[in-house]
Amino acid sequence: MIRQKLALAVATTLLLAGAAHAQSARDYISIVGSSTVYPFTTAVAEQFGKGSKFKTPKVESTGTGGGFKLFCAGVGVQHPDVSNASRAIKKSEIENCAKNGVTEIVEINIGFDGIVVASSKKTKPMPLTIKDLWLALAKEIPDPATGKLVTNNVKTWKDVNPTLPANKIEVLGPPPTSGTRDAFVELVMDHGCKEFPAIKELEKTDEKKAKAVCQTIREDGAYIEAGENDNLIVNKLVANPNALGIFGYSFMEENLDKIQGETINGVAPTFENIADGKYPVSRPLFIYVKKAHVGVIPGIKEFIAEFISEKAVGDDGYLSKKGLIPLPGAKRKQVAADANSLKTLAP
């Protein structure tokens, strides 16, 4: 038996060694990163695979942070070539990349994603402002009388803003691991709190504390972490007409028969408003390309060309049909030119 086991162990090791050898040549592009960008990158990957002589790229959905971790792990076939991101790369991530020898990174802004606050069609629309949303969702808010910070006990939307209905505050949104949540905090919470003089004062004296007050979302059940699956939030909204949900624009577009996007600061979350930059809660989406892999892994240049082509990210491109909001024409041309020349990020 022991001999048999030894033989098995040897066989396994040989198998592994053979596999390691096979790895030395990868003939497809490997992409990792954000689950928000995943639906767009996969569509491009599929088109690219069908319309070119190259293999269809492999697209992993790892989340933006997880994607950069893999992307920055080093140069070589075992590391991914492209990383999807629903936010710009952080300084710490660039440093981590540089430490592992990934110095030349090409950043490509592929378009915008709107973050909508939506409710079931069965309820009346609620015209919200960023200030309302912050007051409803922050953990600590300044007391209206004294300006001192108190724990947020606000129960209904009417308490937030007398013009809103007396519905209980229930907001279904993504968990802290999600890029959508990061963007919501940055675009709504950070701006909403700045409308209060008390917090502006605090910012002058204690910047860290002010940041924490702005960004911390209450944990008493008003904000419900509903997981990363946006379809789930849509279904929960239909079941609970009083709740609001936070998710990406493409999910609203697919479910317009069931849900409606609330106006924020008086601007409705429509394709045109997000594209114009009028709608306040939208964020840029990116892909990052490892320049050192161009020419090593076949097809990277052609893949970039497909991604920035008008037929993909243009105003009528197939990605806009999937819910990606295109960049304005002039910006798009600039991005395309930079991407084609593989202009790298400044170190």
Partner: peptide
């Protein structure tokens, strides 16, 4: 890394 978008049907133990 098996949570991935893969169009080509895998043909062996090494294909994504």
């Amino acid at each position: 890394g098996m949570v991935a978008f893969i169009v080509d049907v895998p043909k062996g133990f090494m294909d994504p």
